[in-house]
Computed example of a mutant assay.
Amino acid sequence: MSGYDSNPFAEPVSDNPFNDPSVTQVTNSSVEPVDQYNPFPASDGLATQTTPAAPSPFQPAVLQPSTEPSPQATAAAAQANLLRQQEELERKAAELDRREQELQTRGPSGKENNWPPLPKSFPIKPCFYQDFSEEIPPEYQRVCKMMYYLWMFGCVALFLNLLACMAFFFTDAKQGVGFGLSILWLILFAPCSFLCWYRPVYKAFRTDSSFSFFFFFFVFFCQVVIFIIQAVGIPDWGNSGWITAFIAFKENTAVGAIMIIVAILFTMCAVLSVILLKMVHQMYRRTGASFQKAQQEFSQGVLTNKTFQTAAAGAASSAAQGAFQANN
C-alpha cells in the first residue's frame, strides 16, 4: 500500500535536479557563496596600516627632439670663438710687451735702474743700476768711487774746454776748427769713457771678472794717453792745453787765463788716471785673475750670446746653400 500513499501528482524525485543531495547541502550550508567571498576581511582588533611606496631614484626618460644647428649658427659660433682667441692673444702680447719694458729698465741684478738719476716724469729713463755699498766689496769701494769721480772730473774738464775754445773762437775767427773739435770731444768722450772704462772696472770689481779687468786696462791706457794730449794742448786739435793756452794768452789775457785753468784740469786728470791705473792693477793682482781666465770668460760669453748664435747659424746656412748650389 505504500505505493498508494505517495502523491500521484508530485514530480518525480529523480526529475528535479535541485533535489540532489550535493546541491541541497551547499544551499543549506552557512558558508558564503563564492561571489560574496571577501579575501580581505576587516579585523576588529587590528588597525590597518598602509606603507607608502619608496620613490624611485631614476627619472623617467624624456626624449628630446633632435635639432641640428644651422650652417649660419655654426659660422657665427666659429667667428665668436676666433674673436675670443684673438682677444686672448692680444692680451698676452700686451703682457709680454709690458714685461719686456720692465726688464729693459732693470739692471743685470734684476733691480730697477737708477743711473743717471733722472726725474720720473723725464721721457728718458735710467740705463744702469749702480750701488757701491751693495754691489762692490768693501775693499774695492774706495777705488771704484775714485774712478767714478775721475770720470765726472773729466767731463767737467771737457765742458770747460768747450767754453774756452768758444771764447778763443770769438776773439780769433781762425780758431773755428778747434771750437768744432771741442764740441766733438765733449759729445764723444763723455759717454764713451763711461761705457768703455768706468763700467768695465765697476763690473770687474763687482763680479771679479778677468775679462773686464783686461778690457779696462786696454781702454784706460788709451784714456791716459788722451788726457796727456789734452793737457799738452796741440793747436787746432780742440784742446785748451798748455801750448794753446800760451798762444791765446798773447792775444787775449782773459781767454788765455781760462785756457790755463783748463790745462791745469787736464793735467790733474792725467796724473790721477796714472795713479788710479796703478792702484787698480795692484788690486787685480790680488784677486787671482789671469789671462787664461779672461780667455775662458770671453769664449763662454761669446758662445752663449744669442746674437752670435744667430749670426753663426745664418753664416752656416748660407755656406751650406752655396755648397749645394755649387754641386748642382
Rank of each mutant, 00 (worst) to 15 (best):
V177D: 08
M147N: 04
F179P: 00
G180C: 11
P138H: 04
C165R: 03
S193Y: 01
L195E: 09
L150Y: 02
A157V: 06
C196Q: 12
M147K: 00
C165T: 08
E139V: 13
L181I: 09
L158T: 04
W185Q: 05
L184Q: 13
F170K: 13
Y140F: 14
L163G: 08
Q141F: 02
D172S: 12
L150Q: 04
I187S: 07
M166A: 15
S193V: 00
G154V: 04
L162A: 10
G178H: 02
M147F: 12
W197G: 00
A164Q: 04
F170A: 15
P191I: 07
I183H: 00
V143M: 12
F189Q: 07
F153D: 15
M152T: 14
L195T: 10
C144T: 15
L181M: 11
C155P: 00
L150N: 00
F153Y: 14
M166Y: 08
F170V: 12
F189I: 07
P138Q: 04
F194G: 02
W185M: 05
A164H: 01
Y140I: 05
L186V: 11
L188F: 11
C196N: 12
N161V: 01
W151A: 01
V156R: 12
P200W: 03
F194Y: 04
L150P: 00
C192Q: 12
A173Q: 13
F179E: 10
Y140W: 10
L158F: 06
Q141R: 11
I183N: 00
V177T: 13
P200I: 05
Q141H: 03
L163V: 11
F168I: 10
C165E: 11
T171G: 15
A190D: 05
A164K: 03
S182I: 01
A190L: 10
M146A: 14
A190F: 08
F169N: 10
L150D: 00
R199K: 12
Y148F: 11
Y149P: 00
V143K: 03
V177F: 03
K174S: 14
Q175K: 13
M146Y: 06
Y148H: 13
L160D: 08
N161T: 04
G180I: 07
M146F: 08
L188K: 07
L195R: 09
F169K: 09
R142D: 14
F159C: 08
F159N: 04
L150F: 03
A173T: 15
L184D: 13
L150T: 02
Y140C: 10
L158R: 06
F189G: 03
P191G: 10
F153E: 13
M147L: 08
C144E: 10
V177K: 08
W197R: 01
L195I: 14
P191Q: 06
Y148D: 10
Y198R: 01
G180W: 07
A167G: 12
I187H: 02
A167I: 04
R199A: 03
I187T: 05
K145Q: 15
A173F: 10
F179K: 08
C196M: 15
K145R: 14
P200V: 06
Y148L: 11
C165F: 01
R142L: 09
C165N: 15
T171R: 15
G176C: 06
A173M: 12
S193R: 02
C165A: 15
C196L: 15
F168M: 13
F189P: 11
T171S: 13
K174R: 14
F179Q: 11
